[in-house]
Design a protein around this nucleic acid. Structure first.
Length: 505
RNA sequence: GAGGCUGUAGCUCAGUCGGUAGAGCAUCGGACUUUUAAUCCGUUGGUCCUGGGUUCGAGUCCCAGCAGCCUCACCA
């Protein structure tokens, strides 16, 4: 038997975290048990283990067993050791798998002296499989009385505090695997995210939408107002940007006759980080030929209701201090009406809007009236919108991709859906007039930098429109924010498995 | 980018007025065949985020930096 190797703390083969402080002693204890396992002829890294039943299913079966019965069925479970308590030659283990937890009991007499040597090698965090009788302990805890134990994987690291779990938000995000194991409700939240995304796809598929994938590497970033991440393709020796929206390529597919398309994908915006912003996030965009923004409201309601059900969210709940009720139809409120009520100005009168904006400390000089109006709306109205509410009919100048109302060309057929003061969805009756689109791409609004403008010329897109894009409704939903909302998570980092971080020093 | 708060053992946290670095869990040793964050006795474990400064003396006070959280700005 070779001496246990003492790994160097430097060089290419250094361990991921060099032993330091009490961590070194903690790791040594585990490595000693690893060696003990090997000397018992047991592979500490395990292998295929067939036929285990999900713990949640085992628990359902257990509920049907009499508390005093000693003839329960034999079951096989596998999972991670979360709690380990020894009472002499009797050991209780709380075992967790993806579905739940169950107590195991191992007795020295019951498993025999050979298997008992294995019990001495167990640590919190190890993965084991067990076969045993399902029943209830004397104190009334559902228990698998182990007949045999299969070692599946050694854990060399000490798990977080078994009572408090991992609470440092930095560690929770950087070591998400530990957060998933030990964090209260963390696994459930990410399962809910998956269910929500499934629900979104289900609603769209049921309505005949085709899921497609557009390019994430693009020559220019269009479809939204945001700074892009820049990169470079070596072989083609060309600059590229990561997409900031899905819009313009999906619309090309409307021209191509796909008629109902959607994409669920990552977009990248080189902007600030906040509880509601992460540089990469997941967007849904859906486009329906021959629809308009009203048809997108129906679709939005259907998606939210289905997603809420999938996430197990009740119809009414509180989120970020706002009471929300997801029973359709959601309220519809005109942009100008809200501005009049909340900001106390006459939305039709640019001077009145500018005066109100000035009262809120907003810059007005040299800025397009619709830009001022838009900033006033954000400064005053947004945070008051508990929602869900469809804010409809936006000032046209700040909507360069949206069709104008036929009888009111200064109004764009756009809505944004707000919940808890947060923008959750954004939809248009899509502009399909190539000449107007080209003109709007050329129009840089006074008071807006080029990089904060949606007006970014895309001649290939204009050419597509010139071939004829059907009149259409289009919808965008921020999936991360939707998940935040439906799981009552206060930060977007709670619903992104691996949010952005600076490197740790 | 600005401000506020935070950073102490593997994890969760105390640390008073500037005067020898603390607890619980985890670890290790011991007792225990019905525990439930098991309990009990004992034990090990520290770059007090980093670097300066003030001081006889700094986890504590000051400065700079790093990281996190929050607020604001940005995100029309």
């Amino acid at each position: 038997m070779p001496e246990p190797s003492h790994p160097s703390t430097t060089g290419p083969n250094a361990p991921a975290t060099g032993p330091k402080g009490s961590g070194a002693a903690l790791e040594k204890a585990r490595r000693d048990k690893l060696d003990a396992l090997k000397s018992l002829g047991i592979d500490p890294w395990g292998g295929r283990f067939d036929g285990a039943t999900a713990i949640a299913d085992v628990r359902s079966r257990g509920m049907e067993i009499e508390k005093t019965a000693d003839d329960g069925p034999t079951v096989r479970v596998a999972g991670r050791i979360m709690l380990l308590r020894s009472a002499g030659s009797l050991v209780f283990i709380e075992l967790a798998d993806r579905t739940g937890r169950i107590q195991l009991m191992l007795g020295k007499k019951q498993v025999g002296p050979e298997a008992w040597k294995l019990v001495d090698c167990l640590d919190l965090g190890d993965l084991v499989g067990v076969d045993g009788r399902l029943g209830w302990s004397k104190t009334g805890e559902m228990t698998v009385f182990a007949a045999s134990l299969t070692f599946l994987t050694k854990s060399l690291e000490t798990p977080p505090d078994k009572f408090h779990g991992l609470v440092d938000p930095d560690l929770k995000q950087r070591m998400r695997y530990l957060d998933l194991i030990h964090g209260e409700g963390v696994r459930e939240r990410f399962i809910a995210r998956s269910r929500i995304v499934e629900a979104v796809r289900r609603v769209l598929a049921a309505r005949g939408y085709l899921e497609v994938e557009g390019p994430t590497l693009q020559e220019s970033a269009g479809g939204a107002a945001a700074r892009p991440f820049m990169t470079h393709h070596n072989a083609l020796d060309m600059p590229l940007v990561l997409r900031i929206a899905l819009e313009l390529h999906l619309k090309r597919l409307l021209v191509g006759g796909l008629e109902r398309v959607f994409e669920l994908g990552r977009v990248y915006r080189n902007e600030g980080v906040s509880p509601r912003h992460n540089p990469e996030f997941t967007m849904l965009e859906a486009y329906e030929a021959y629809g308009d923004y009203s048809s997108m409201m129906d679709l939005t309601e259907a998606i939210l209701v289905e997603a809420a059900a999938a996430a197990g969210a009740p119809a009414r709940f509180e989120f970020l201090g706002h009471q929300v009720d997801l029973t359709p139809p959601f309220r519809r409120a005109k942009y100008d009406d809200l501005l009049r009520e909340v900001a106390g100005c006459d939305p039709a009168d640019a001077a009145s809007v500018a005066a109100a904006a000035a009262r809120h400390g907003l810059e007005t000089a040299g800025r397009h009236p619709d830009v001022v109006k838009s900033e006033l709306f954000e400064a005053t109205v947004e945070k008051t919108l508990s929602g869900p509410v469809f804010v409809i009919d936006y000032p046209a100048a700040v909507c360069p991709l949206t069709k104008r109302k036929a009888d009111a060309p200064h109004v764009a057929e756009r809505f944004e859906l707000y919940v808890a003061g947060m923008e959750l969805a954004n939809a248009y009756t899509e502009l399909n007039d190539p000449d107007l689109q080209e003109e709007l791409f050329r129009t840089q609004l006074a008071g807006l930098d080029a990089e904060e403008s949606m007006a970014r010329m895309d001649t290939d897109f204009i050419r597509a429109l010139r071939h004829g894009m059907p009149p259409a409704g289009g919808l965008g939903i921020g999936i991360d924010r939707l998940v935040m909302f439906l799981t009552a998570a206060p930060s977007i980092r709670d619903v992104i498995l691996f949010p952005i971080h600076r490197p740790h020093t």
